[in-house]
Amino acid sequence: MSAKRLVDLFVYVYLALFFAYLFLPLVFMVAAAFNDSRFPTMLPWQGFTLDWFWGFDSRGRAIGLFQDGRMGMAIWNSVLIGLGVILVSIPVGLAGALFLQTIRTRAKSFLYGVMVSPILTPGVILGISTLVFWRYVFDVGGGLMLAVIAQSTFIAAYCMLLFLARLERFDRTQEEAALDLGASHGLMLRRVMLPFLRPALLSGAVLAFLQSFENYNTTLFVIGIEDTLTLNIATRVRLGLTPAVNAIGVIMIALTILGAVVYEILRRREARATPVEPVAAG
């Protein structure tokens, strides 16, 4: 019995350490955003301040995050890229999922492998290959558009997997029933299949945006002279760090947690929104 207690104790300590490891660095980072210190650190605590969000230093210079115009530009770019990625990834992922779920050829698993390979490819490689290809074939240089394209290579694959999982639960006799009742393929898609896929399309859009928004490794190679939020943070860390970076972190963490919660809710609702169970098995 006491041996079991010892084991239990060990397990709890291990878990506590693990979660402390996960959370404490983030907590420190958040705390430092409110510390009235020139350096982004929690210790020593020099008093609470919101200056790093909006404020002025002793010589009257603006030091707050929101007073920085470049930051606004970077956020704007990130949003644009995220929307672009949604626009590309959702249709592409949907087409891929429909394609893979329908075809019956022997090459299917090979095609599957090709289509999901971007997920298993390091982000820098996706960035580089996109840059090289588009530069030389279409003379498209680094910039927002190329960032959208490069990110979509793997985000579309994530979306495809999401849609594929949903499609597997689709009762295909519904398609046949629609056609049997005289519907064209278009009407069948619009009224029967897409409504069924809608929850997955929604969570796919959220996933695509979040993935795009936080992407660094791929974007770095294809962004050209533009800036995005993640790139901006990285630059600030390397050149001239102030706790304003922590302030960005606080806002981003808040937003991501919000986004993640929305995503999880959508995903759970999608999982629950199964169609009426077939009355009898065929």
Binding site: L26, G249, T256, A260
Partner: peptide, 30 residues
């Protein structure tokens, strides 16, 4: 508890360690 940090940006996660390991960082302070 695992999902939440999973969604936090890679850059920010790295930055949080940067803060711990930096010259005025937490570890040196401690």
């Amino acid at each position: 508890g695992l999902v939440v940090p999973f969604w936090v940006n890679e850059i920010l996660r790295t930055f949080s360690w940067f803060l711990i390991l930096s010259r005025n960082g937490l570890l040196n302070q401690v």
